[in-house]
């Protein structure tokens, strides 16, 4: 792996040398920093201010109809942490976030490697895999609701009956099967898009590395784990980060596929925020939920970033 170490060392030396001879001193630095100003303004007004407002509302009984509110302290937080439906929502949200992230990654990388090879009809196969990423998840949820209908006339059930004489299976009616169904549809919808992301990185790996490895007698497996996978770690960081954040804030797919049911089996945190806030006019409670959720997502996201950066440093 010396070949991969060389560019990293070269880049670092270049950066150090450039910083030593930075022209213009602090004035130039100030001008450079000024370019960050629009981003900071956007960050403050679209993230910091709403988050601060949410925190404020979370300490009140705000109903959304009048800004005349009563301070209720941490009562909303107490309600959330003792409400079985909210805890069920937290459990499924974590399961969906982690489940889709792990399985999509396990599918997308080998898929990208295969789609990167030359074969007849490659573009068509790539398009077919990418297609589920185009329609909205809400539309996909509604379509899959009919496909996975627990009735004998459901698409999957009637196919299973015709081919194997099995069924009908309670895809969306049994708590466990409903959870699995939502996660599988989520994986199906995301795998192709993330495979394309990995393909973009695969195509930037110089072919010479593989040629040298082949000359040295490396098998296909050794080439994958010794060259492909380490050089894909930047893509891995981006892909898993996107998957985890999208998975944790998932709303449209479970909402349209199962509406959070049966019971609270597939209820998500985002759905409980929307239901509490919009449908039930309990904005104080919804704000408290949003604050707790932001903290949890931030902790998970930073943890994940730290982990992937550690892996990245190990390989690159």
């Amino acid at each position: 792996m010396t070949t991969t170490m060389l560019p990293r060392a070269t880049v670092r030396e270049g950066l150090v040398a450039r910083s030593r001879r930075r022209p213009g001193g602090w004035k130039q630095l100030a001008v450079n920093q000024a370019f960050l100003l629009p981003a900071i303004v956007v960050f403050v007004f679209l993230f910091v201010v709403p988050l601060a407002q949410s925190f404020y509302w979370s300490l009140t009984d705000f109903t959304g109809y009048s800004s005349d509110v009563t301070f209720v302290g941490l009562s909303n937080y107490r309600t959330i942490l003792t409400d079985p439906s909210m805890l069920a929502a937290l459990g499924f949200t974590l399961l969906f976030g982690v489940g889709t992230t792990v399985v999509v990654t396990l599918i997308a990388i080998p898929l990208a490697v295969q789609l990167n090879k030359r074969f007849f009809g490659r573009n068509l196969v790539r398009s077919l895999w990418f297609f589920p990423a185009i329609p909205s998840m809400a539309i996909l949820g509604l379509v899959w609701r009919y496909i996975l209908s627990p009735l004998e006339s459901g698409v999957v059930n009637s196919t299973l009956q015709d081919l194997f004489g099995v069924g009908p299976l309670a895809w969306l009616s049994d708590g466990t099967l409903a959870r699995v169904s939502v996660i599988v549809v989520g994986i199906w919808a995301a795998a192709g898009w993330h495979a394309v992301l990995y393909m973009a990185y695969l195509q930037s790996i110089p072919n010479e590395y593989y040629e040298v490895a082949r000359i040295d007698g490396a098998s296909a497996r050794q080439q994958f784990f010794g060259i492909t996978l380490p050089l894909l770690t930047p893509a891995l960081v981006i892909s898993t980060f996107l998957l985890m954040t999208a998975g944790l804030k998932v709303f449209d797919l479970p909402y349209t596929l199962t509406n959070g049911g049966p019971g609270f089996s597939t209820y998500t945190i985002t759905q409980s925020i929307v239901v509490a806030g919009v449908s039930q006019g309990r904005y104080g409670l919804a704000s408290a939920l949003a604050v707790l959720f932001t903290i949890a997502v931030a902790a998970l996201a930073f943890g994940q970033l730290w982990l992937t950066k550690t892996i990245e440093r190990r390989f690159v």
Partner: peptide
Amino acid sequence: VSPDVVGLDGDMVRDE
């Protein structure tokens, strides 16, 4: 009635 009805919505029932 089958407990599977918990996975059905009004439109599915109407179509049946």
